[in-house]
Design a protein around this nucleic acid. Sequence first.
DNA 1: CGGTTCGTTGAGGCCCATCAATCTATGTGG
DNA 2: CCACATAGATTGATGGGCCTCAACGAACCG
Lengths: 259, 259
Amino acid sequence: MRDGQQLSEVPARSRSSRITLAGTRIGASPLLSREERQALEAAALPSRSVRAGADLVREGERTDCLYLLVEGWACRYLTTRDGSRQIAALLVPGDTANIDTLAFDSPGYGVRAMTEATVLAIPRDRALALAADRVGIARTFMFLALTDNAILSQWALCIGRHSARQRLAHLLCELSARLDPEDGNESSFALPVTQEQLADALGLTSVHVNRTMQQLRTEGLIVTASRVVTIPDVSQLRKAGEFDPAYLHQIDSSAAASI
Amino acid sequence: MRDGQQLSEVPARSRSSRITLAGTRIGASPLLSREERQALEAAALPSRSVRAGADLVREGERTDCLYLLVEGWACRYLTTRDGSRQIAALLVPGDTANIDTLAFDSPGYGVRAMTEATVLAIPRDRALALAADRVGIARTFMFLALTDNAILSQWALCIGRHSARQRLAHLLCELSARLDPEDGNESSFALPVTQEQLADALGLTSVHVNRTMQQLRTEGLIVTASRVVTIPDVSQLRKAGEFDPAYLHQIDSSAAASI
DNA sequence: CGGTTCGTTGAGGCCCATCAATCTATGTGG
DNA sequence: CCACATAGATTGATGGGCCTCAACGAACCG
């Protein structure tokens, strides 16, 4: 991962195509009324683009915006004293980067763009004010926080108790489910991150990620070509990674209806 | 960890001392008005006691109550297919066991009492209704969820990137900060769990936890006697475990004031 | 075409898992 | 009070999964 340059104030995207919340998990929340959706829309600042490697939030520093990732990939990460890094969450388009900001001045982690990215920002004050007035917005925030929670618990299990092969298989299954949620038994998605970044997510070294990836390729569980991963038989890879998509609580699942 | 017996309907505690929310993190939330506190109080079912080893929530099953741990220790855990276990959170008196229940029918984890325990339960429906009406309650729930989140992220870093010695030191520091939050440089607390349970939390084996604990003892970082841990020099153990209490967002810190 | 980033491969070693035995503390029934 | 059972802590021997260090190849780019 490149060093995190300070987030320079990159001007808004040159093409003036309107970027809205529509493509984000917040904007697509089934818990929002139309009016609430519009209120959130109005609260967001103009979108801006961010260079790969830039920090949206620096580790240990204050933030006062909630960031929504519209395009590109990012991650939440933590660092040890000796400089090794653990990625606590991979963020893909639509994800909310730092929901914790709603409760804390400074999150315990940094948020970094892993590719060039486009983000929307909602000032914390506005988000809290909206949540206080409108139940749907408060519930949407809560739903996102709890989903993060579920993913993190699963991540802990994965890192703590799974072999490298299982971990990688699990991560690829998770990404497949989040990026390509069609139900077919074949799945394919772009994976625009380096093996070192995968290693930081999995608690491994890049060398071992490389070898493990070769193993999965040799076994025919995955096919890779220029940063596109294809999973010929999703159910087989899921078995290898002990992956069960239930914990993702995806919108299309029935879980959301109950809250 | 003993097998999780089905949670038999243990009668309420024989002594009729009133158990209230006062001792829990929910009840002590600074975000609640007096009226909101009373409303929550009224929503809770009578407390009941639970045997060590019993499941409050079984892995993968529905729940419709939010559980608050009043006495004793519990944990949130996940299991792999081959039966190994990862504890995703240690719960001590005052903690909320399954905040996720507010959003999902079935959490991705189980909750098990590790000692004999006393719990309060709030039906999910009531909790959600209260949150919808009263901002302070909604914010309290959100605050708890986000704190869990921060702890889980730190946990992931710890498991993914720290050595056994660092992990154990970190966990002991965390427990010290949660159980004995006085500021002195010596700390002492009861640790009523087995080394195997610690191993499940740390992503290690009990054998290795044992050896690591001996190492910490030899180095003079901890003293143990009949399941009481004493940390003669907290700052030294914190250094060994790279522990910084900021992420716990404890009530006495200034963080809570901002939400 | 040289530089840089990223992927790949090899050799060697350590941390922690595994398996198994022993020791201690606690409790239980006769 | 002792024989016995059981859970948990402790210790030893052995091995393997993953790390570390290092070099090389491949792709991309100004």
